[in-house]
């Protein structure tokens, strides 16, 4: 089996039913994508497949047919900068997933409304309560994108 992750093609020797999450973490050693629930309920394992935010714990590696981007491969840009400017992370465990979801949202629109942000983040949980700063950081990043 072959998959492309962060621009690199990998030959993977794994059960095709194995969720992409565990291929990334345990086979390829890309540990920035986190396990939080294993059932697509928390968003900690969010990656991009063909640019769309996907829960890697719900996607069997055998079904991956497009290029995968993980937090390690996400091009540095306004989203991460805004996260740092707003000092969003506390424990930080859920943040790669939040950052990936925010990046996917902002790739679709550079002026998301609060309702659009709520919808994009509805599948994510942060137990540290960083939500208000996440919202502020997304608006901040959107502003940066609009102003180029």
């Amino acid at each position: 089996m072959q998959i492309t992750v962060n621009g690199t093609r990998h030959r993977v020797d794994a059960d095709p039913a194995m969720p992409l999450l565990w291929v990334l973490r345990d086979v390829l050693g890309l540990t920035g994508t986190k396990y939080g629930c294993g059932t697509g309920l928390c968003g900690a394992c969010t990656v991009h497949v063909a640019g769309r935010a996907v829960a890697a714990c719900q996607l069997p590696v055998g079904k991956v047919s497009a290029e995968v981007t993980t937090i390690e491969g996400l091009a540095a840009g306004p989203v991460q900068d805004a996260w740092i400017a707003h000092q969003v992370a506390q424990c930080g465990y859920c943040q790669p997933g939040h950052v990936m979801a925010a990046a996917a949202l902002l790739a679709r629109t550079d002026s998301p409304t609060d309702a659009e942000i709520d919808a994009a983040m509805a599948g994510h949980i942060c137990r540290c309560g960083t939500g208000p700063r996440i919202r502020a950081a997304i608006h901040h990043a959107a502003r940066q994108l609009r102003e180029g």
Partner: peptide, 21 residues
């Protein structure tokens, strides 16, 4: 102050106990 652990957390570089390889 800017937290020294912030950039690593945002970029997914922080190694929690389950991320040791």
């Amino acid at each position: 102050l800017p937290r020294p652990d912030m950039a690593d957390k945002v970029h997914g570089r922080t190694r929690y106990a389950g991320d040791i390889r």
